[in-house]
Every structure is written in C-alpha cells, then in structure tokens.
C-alpha cells in the first residue's frame, strides 16, 4: 500500500489536528453523496476506502488505537430485488448502459411505470445527457411522488443545477432592489465631496 501520509496529502511531521483536517476535507470531497447516480461512484468509493485506510493506519502508527475513520461508505445500492426491472438495475450498476436501455426500450407501453422512467433517466444520466435525465426523473416523481429513490435522484439533479461555484454569484438578477452596495458607496462619496467643499475635509 502507498504511504498513508501521501494518500492524505500531508507531511509525516504534520500534527494530529492537521491530519484530521486533511482527512475531513478529503472525506467530504469523496463522500458518496456527491456521487449518487454518477457513473464514477465506484471510483469515488474506492478513493474513500483508501483515505479511510490511510487515516486508520496513521492513527495506529501514532499509537492511538483505532481511528474513527472507517465509519464511512455505507451501502448505497437500491432496493433491487423487488423490482420488475431487476436485470436493468444490474446492467446500470455495471455501467452497461446499452444493454440496460435495450431491455427498457423493448418493454411494452403498458409496463412503462414510474420505475421505467426512473431507470431511463438513470441511463441518460450515465451517458451525460442531463437534460433528458431530468425530464425522465421528473416524470417518475410525478407518477409516484411517494418513492424516496426517485425523489432522491431528482433532488440530486436540482442541487447540481442550482450550484454555482466561486463567490461571484449572479447579482443583477432582474428584480434588483432600489438601493445596492454601489448606491450606498456613491452616496457616501458624494457626502464626502460636500464635506470637502466646506474645507472641513473628513
């Protein structure tokens, strides 16, 4: 196995606190929740396992007994066995999207339940066709609003769609209020100028 310190990206002289921080940062990054439905979920899981092991190992080396690290990576597989499209789920899990879609497309019109739409959405999502996936997931949720699995997939999409990184979010979105930061700033500057006029410069 690799050097556990390298896996966490810290030096061997790092303090316990630094290691914990590095571990937490990485665990957040690779957390399975970030990769729900993603075609890369298994790779993220693998990474998560590696950092868990590395963290445990460091803790052992440092004579602190077992770390608290390995709590992560729960089992995120769907409730497959009762499903009428069991084989489709297996194919999707193995990233064999063509085969999965073939089965779905051959299903008769009457069998196109909420689950069918959900799985069609999964196939589209795995291919990277996010818009199509979004509309399939929406249909699935509308047909069966009580199902947590479909809801979770749709929520995940909505989070991604609302997510705009970096601090510089859109500001001038249509309904601006009358008084912005700029206005305040200009007002203060004007007031300051007036002050100067009276030779009382403040």
């Amino acid at each position: 196995m690799n050097n556990p310190y390298e896996v966490l990206g810290v030096s061997e002289t790092a303090s316990d606190e630094e290691i914990k921080d590095a571990y937490r940062r990485l665990a957040k990054k690779y957390h399975p929740d970030n990769y729900t439905d993603s075609p890369l979920s298994d790779i993220a899981e693998q990474k998560m396992k590696e950092i868990n092991e590395a963290y445990d190992q460091i803790n052992q080396i440092r004579q602190k007994g077992r770390g608290t690290g390995s709590a992560g990576s729960g089992n995120y597989s769907g409730n497959g066995s009762s499903s009428q499209f069991y084989s489709v789920r297996i194919y999707i899990q193995r990233n064999m999207i063509d085969q999965a879609e073939q089965i779905l497309d051959s299903a008769p019109q009457g069998n196109r339940t909420a689950e069918w739409f959900y799985l069609k959405g999964m196939c589209a999502y795995r291919r990277g066709w996010s818009e199509q996936a979004f509309s399939y997931f929406t249909t699935a949720c509308n047909m069966n609003p009580g199902n947590g699995e479909y809801r979770a997939a749709l929520n995940n999409m909505q989070n991604q769609r609302a997510y705009n990184y970096g601090g510089y979010n859109q500001t001038n979105v249509g309904n601006q209020s009358d008084c912005t930061c700029c206005d305040i700033c200009t007002t203060i500057m004007c007031a300051d100028c007036l002050c100067d006029c009276c030779r009382m410069g403040c």
Binding site: L40, S130, A162, N164
Partner: peptide, 18 residues
C-alpha cells in the same frame, strides 16, 4: 440556461476531484 450550465460544471467538478 444557467441551470443546464451549472449542472455540467458540477458534474465536471465531481470527476475532476477524482
């Protein structure tokens, strides 16, 4: 349009992290 763009970037970032 912004939502579609955000989504692509979010997924790209998830992969980038790996």
């Amino acid at each position: 349009i912004a939502a579609v763009l955000n989504q692509s970037l979010a997924r790209a970032y998830d992969a980038y992290n790996l």
